[in-house]
């Protein structure tokens, strides 16, 4: 029997972030695709009887606000957190090597190929390949979403004073990147798909690790801890 050591990998704030993101992401994805393809069509002819698109968009924006707040918290933790990610997330020198090693491990399943990750950090491939994408995509969703929202936001209907400028100038970044509103909308749609793609892979990898490593990886997001085999 090998012995296990319980290690701390995710603090409470990160875990809360994760599940808030989980809920908000699913809400955004469902409502977002509904906005793109509204299939419920009401024909009462009395607009006071229904407010379907309005509610769907409201949920999309509430989810979006949650995602945006999480993104800001995440960026803070990225630099100043307990385990500042920026130190190991970029594929520089050993990190790049670790990522390749991890990739090899996913196919050889050889524990010797698994990089010696210390207890405090995520393994390089997972961090680099998936989380960074999810976070960068989320930032792109934020600016393209704000660009689409900004025409509707003015001084009268923002909750925060000066909110319209936040929307306007964040949206302008999207105009610089994508050029025009049509491309911004298409980009928002495409990145939604890309995020779903990466989230599926993310969930697969977490389950895979749980099954093959037998170190209780999934409980990281619940309890913050996993078990490492003592060498």
């Amino acid at each position: 029997m090998s012995e296990f050591k319980r290690v701390y990998r995710m603090n409470g704030l990160l875990r809360f972030n994760h599940w808030a993101m989980f809920v908000a992401f699913i809400a955004c994805a469902v409502t977002g695709f509904y906005i793109a393809h509204p299939f419920l069509v009401f024909e009462t002819g009395e607009v006071i009887d229904s407010y379907v698109m309005g509610y769907v968009r409201l949920i999309h924006y509430l989810g979006a606000i949650v995602l945006d707040v999480i993104l800001i918290i995440w960026i803070y933790l990225f630099f100043f957190g307990r385990h500042p990610y920026f130190k190991f997330i970029f594929p520089l020198r050993e990190r790049g090597k670790e990522a390749l090693q991890m990739l090899k491990h996913y196919f050889t399943l050889d524990m010797k190929d698994r990089p010696e990750s210390d207890e405090d950090r995520m393994d390089a491939l997972n961090a680099w390949g998936i989380f960074l994408f999810i976070i960068v995509f989320k930032a792109l969703m934020l600016i393209t979403g704000f660009a689409m929202l900004s025409p509707q936001i003015n001084a009268e209907n923002t909750a925060i004073p000066g909110g319209q400028y936040v929307f306007y100038y964040t949206g302008q970044i999207a105009y610089i990147i994508f050029g025009n509103l049509v491309n911004i909308r298409i980009a928002h749609h495409l990145i939604a798909w890309l995020m779903i793609f990466f989230v599926i892979i993310h969930i697969y990898i977490e389950i895979w690790r749980e099954v093959f490593w037998k170190e209780g990886d999934i409980s990281i997001v619940f309890s913050g801890h996993k078990f490492l085999k003592k060498k």
């Binding site: 009401f42 024909e43 002819g45 607009v47 379907v52 769907v56």
Partner: peptide
């Protein structure tokens, strides 16, 4: 108002 209510024309000439 019809957009927010979810009342759409599905094809040309329909009830909507």
């Amino acid at each position: 108002a019809h957009f927010d209510a979810g009342e759409f024309v599905r094809e040309w000439g329909d009830e909507g």
